[in-house]
Every structure is written in structure tokens, then in C-alpha cells.
């Protein structure tokens, strides 16, 4: 394939990765920002979202769209409730101490993973996309005959992948409105800035924490429901999203939601675009190393304040 169309293809694919990543990372970012804890089980909430989507769609049957819509409503809600329960049962009792939270959430990770293995099984299971047309894409170039449009071999995307990008954007806007325009959003932001003062003003901080933890998990699950028609549900699928969203949150700057969005796009796209120039594994090595170097020279993250 020619360089131009190849780059365009890689960019489009990068955008899909970034779209999913932004939702998952946003979930972690909110939790991290408000509660200041590293939730190692975040990837497992993502996995649960995908697995529940499979259960819902295979239970309902019928046209894939019915199951998909049901999954997008049910899976994040259920995962959010599970996460809120975990917060009430465990994290609340360890006072959100950073070290203990790591051990506690590793424990939760084991429990969720093993339970899924026992109920869902070790296989990768696909979920049908509600719609999935292959769309060939044109390319424009100046040739001897002037400006020409042609259809390069292999340059295409699917309607569902475009939908994923659009859906992620919609969720982002809704989330932004929720955090800035609603009372609950205001309370969350107040708790994030200073939980003690918030408490003094009568904010039920414990409840807010549970909601935040549930919301974070629900966002991860939502990302997973969107991704599961592209990838498949598998009980070990949580590790990658955990690492990537963790990286995104820190690169973006702790507690900065715009930073998280920018970092997700940067990381999602760079992975795709660097792969145009190098052999795949080398591209991965370079991408990982470069992102790490961003942090080395800007430890507070892209949009973070200096005092972290």
C-alpha cells in the first residue's frame, strides 16, 4: 500500500483505539482524581462489562441490535453497582490508604477473574455488532492528470468502528455536562478539591466516593461494551486496558480530565502511526519508550499542575 493511504488507515485505526481508551481512562481518572487511590481492579471492571454484554446479548437473542442496546444499558449499570459495593465493603474500611488499596484491589482482581473463569469460561466469545458495513475509502492525489480521486486497495473502515468513535465523543460530552452542570457533579468536584472541607459543608463524602467508584467502573464497562463487537470477551482481557488507562491518566496529568482526553488520543494514535514506519514490535518498543520519556521530562503530565 502507498504511504498516504497507509498512514490514513493507521490514523483511523488509532482513532478507534483512542476512543475506547478515552472512556476507560476517564473512569480511572475520575476515581484517581477524587479518591486518590490506584484501582488495580479497574481492568477487571472493563472485562466484566464485556462479559456481561455477552451474557445479555446471548440471553436476549434476536437481532444483534436489540442485545447491543440492552447490553449498553445493563452492563455499565451492573458493573457500577458491583464496584460501589466493593467500595462499601472493602475500600471504605481501609480508609483509602494507598498501599492497602493496592493489595485490596489486587485481591478484588483475583476474585473477579476467577469468578468469571468459573461462570463464563476460558474461551474468547464474540458479540455481534448491531451493524457492520465495510466502507471503502477514497484517496486523493496530484498526478500527471491533475487532482485525482481513487480507491486504494485495502483502505477501508467499518460503519461500526465509526459509530464507536461517535459514541465515545457523545459520552465524553455527556460526562462533561454531568460534571460541570449538575449538582452531583459539583459535589464530586468539591470532594476532589478538598474532601475535608466538603465534609464540613455537609457533603456525604463516603457516599460520593462510592458513586465515584461506581461511575469509574461503569465508564470502563461502557468502553468494553463498545469494543466487544470488535474484539471478544475473554476473562483475561482486563490487563491491557488497565495498564494503558493508568498510563493515560498519569501522562495527561493527575486529576485533569482534558489532559486525560489528550493523552488517550496521543497514545491511541501514536501506536498506530509509529507502526507505519517500523516493524510492529519495534514500533511498540519505540512508542512505549517515547511515552515514558514524555513523563520523564514532564513529570506532572501534560496538563497537570506542578505539585504532584
Amino acid at each position: 500500500m502507498d504511504f498516504g493511504p497507509h498512514l490514513m488507515l493507521a490514523t483511523l485505526e488509532g482513532a478507534v483505539i483512542a476512543a475506547i481508551l478515552v472512556l476507560t481512562a476517564m473512569g480511572l481518572s475520575i476515581v484517581f482524581g477524587v479518591m486518590r487511590v490506584v484501582n488495580v481492579a479497574h481492568g477487571e471492571f472493563y472485562m466484566l462489562g464485556a462479559v456481561l454484554a455477552w451474557f445479555v446479548t446471548s440471553f436476549l437473542g434476536g437481532h444483534p441490535a436489540i442485545g447491543f442496546v440492552a447490553a449498553i444499558l445493563i452492563a455499565p449499570l451492573l458493573v457500577g453497582l458491583i464496584a460501589a459495593a466493593a467500595d462499601q465493603l472493602v475500600l471504605k474500611h481501609i480508609d483509602y490508604d494507598p498501599d492497602r488499596t493496592i493489595v485490596g484491589t489486587i485481591g478484588i482482581l483475583f476474585i473477579i477473574q476467577q469468578t468469571t473463569l468459573m461462570t463464563f469460561g476460558p474461551e474468547a466469545r464474540p458479540v455481534a455488532a448491531p451493524f457492520n458495513q465495510r466502507l471503502a475509502l477514497p484517496w486523493f492525489e496530484f498526478t500527471d492528470n491533475g487532482f485525482e480521486m481513487f480507491w486504494p486497495w485495502g483502505l477501508s473502515i467499518t460503519s461500526y468502528k465509526l459509530f464507536v468513535i461517535a459514541a465515545a465523543l457523545t459520552v465524553l460530552v455527556a460526562l462533561w455536562l454531568f460534571l460541570t452542570r449538575t449538582r452531583i457533579g459539583l459535589i464530586m468536584r468539591a470532594t476532589q478539591q478538598d474532601s475535608e472541607t466538603a465534609q464540613a459543608f455537609g457533603v456525604p463524602v463516603g457516599l460520593v466516593y462510592s458513586c465515584v467508584f461506581g461511575l469509574g467502573a461503569a465508564l470502563a464497562a461502557l468502553g468494553a461494551v463498545l469494543v466487544v463487537p470488535i474484539q471478544q470477551a475473554h476473562y483475561l482481557m482486563g490487563a491491557d486496558p488497565l495498564l494503558l488507562s493508568f498510563i493515560v491518566v498519569i501522562i495527561g496529568g493527575l486529576g485533569s480530565l482534558p489532559g486525560t482526553v489528550i493523552a488517550a488520543i496521543l497514545i491511541g494514535m501514536s501506536d498506530g502511526i509509529i507502526s507505519v514506519f517500523f516493524s510492529p514490535t519495534l514500533a511498540k518498543i519505540i512508542a512505549t519508550f517515547l511515552v515514558a520519556m514524555v513523563l520523564v521530562f514532564r513529570p506532572q503530565g501534560l496538563l497537570g499542575r506542578t505539585s504532584t
Binding site: 488507515l9 493507521a10 485505526e13 507505519v276 516493524s279 510492529p280 514490535t281 511498540k284
Partner: peptide, 14 residues
């Protein structure tokens, strides 16, 4: 050669 951690592949097909 595809890195084993990969979950999407389209960008390698060109």
C-alpha cells in the same frame, strides 16, 4: 510479526 500483546491488527495489513 505481530507483537503478542496486540489486540487490533488492521494497521499491519497494508
Amino acid at each position: 510479526a505481530i507483537p503478542p500483546t496486540e489486540t487490533t491488527f488492521t494497521r499491519y495489513f497494508p
